[in-house]
């Protein structure tokens, strides 16, 4: 009989309320745009981007991070629905395409510098910190969206959200990063992204999981005092 009480409460809670539209889906993209705008406002955008003459490496890393961000973001957003089971292969295909293009660019402009000079570990660590800082607000936007959704694949959703956030952070940093060596980009951007994805997979899986949360809107409060679930 207690389930009858619950149904009464849910009907009261829902009556007269339109369901929110999907405009929030644009939130992660808005956050990335805001971060890019902040770069422009603070004057950190690369001068060659201002002039409209970026090198091949700059063009590649912007296109590559944007591609991964869009594909992984699309995957994360699809996973909000319990009945959509998107395939993982588009993200793998994007990653392979990105690495292949990077290898081709590197092969076209061979560097004579020793390996350690190309990798610049001190700058690389700075790169990881900046990409992570840029990824965090985007990840928060994805968490908000996924928690409003009903994902039944929380681990996949957390991984996709982490990958999209990491690629977004890398995309914003790609607009300012002064180093144009493809090897440097592949190593440090990929390392930063991997760290973010691993952390996201570990921490967000439980956060975005579909959970039956009792609504606490006015009108439900009296019933909530009776305790829920009602046995």
């Amino acid at each position: 009989m207690r389930t009858d009480t619950l149904i009464d409460a849910l009907v009261v809670d829902a009556s007269g309320r339109m369901q929110p539209r999907g405009w929030l889906v644009g939130l992660p993209f808005a956050v990335v745009a805001l971060e890019a705008a902040a770069l422009v406002v603070t004057g950190q955008l690369r001068p060659d981007l201002w002039a409209g003459t970026p090198s091949a490496v700059v063009g590649w890393r912007i296109a590559a991070t944007a591609l991964v961000a869009v594909v992984a973001g699309w995957l994360a957003l699809r996973l909000r629905s319990p009945v959509r089971t998107p395939r993982d292969w588009p993200i793998l295909l994007a990653a392979v395409a990105v690495l292949l293009a990077g290898w081709l660019i590197d092969a076209a402009h061979p560097s004579s510098l020793p390996l350690l000079a190309r990798l610049r570990p001190a700058k690389g660590l700075h790169c990881i910190a900046v990409v992570t800082a840029g990824a965090f607000p985007v990840m928060a936007a994805f968490v908000l969206l996924l928690r409003r959704g009903a994902t039944v694949r929380p681990r996949a959703a957390a991984t996709a959200a982490g990958m999209a956030s990491a690629a977004s952070g890398a995309l914003v940093w790609a607009l300012a990063c002064p180093i144009d060596d493809p090897l440097y980009v592949v190593l440090w951007y990929a390392l930063a992204s991997a760290l973010i994805v691993v952390a996201s997979r570990a921490w967000l899986t439980e956060v975005v999981k579909l959970r039956p949360r009792c609504p606490v809107r006015e009108g439900m409060r009296r019933r909530l005092r009776e305790g829920w679930p009602w046995r």
Binding site: L6, L10, G149, L210, P212
Partner: peptide, 23 residues
């Protein structure tokens, strides 16, 4: 079983916005 039914009803309620009427 009864607790699970109540959980599912609340989940359906909370997530009803994710239902696509065309499906």
């Amino acid at each position: 079983a009864e607790d699970a039914v109540q959980d599912a009803l609340v989940a359906i309620h909370n997530k009803r916005a994710t239902y696509d009427g065309l499906r």
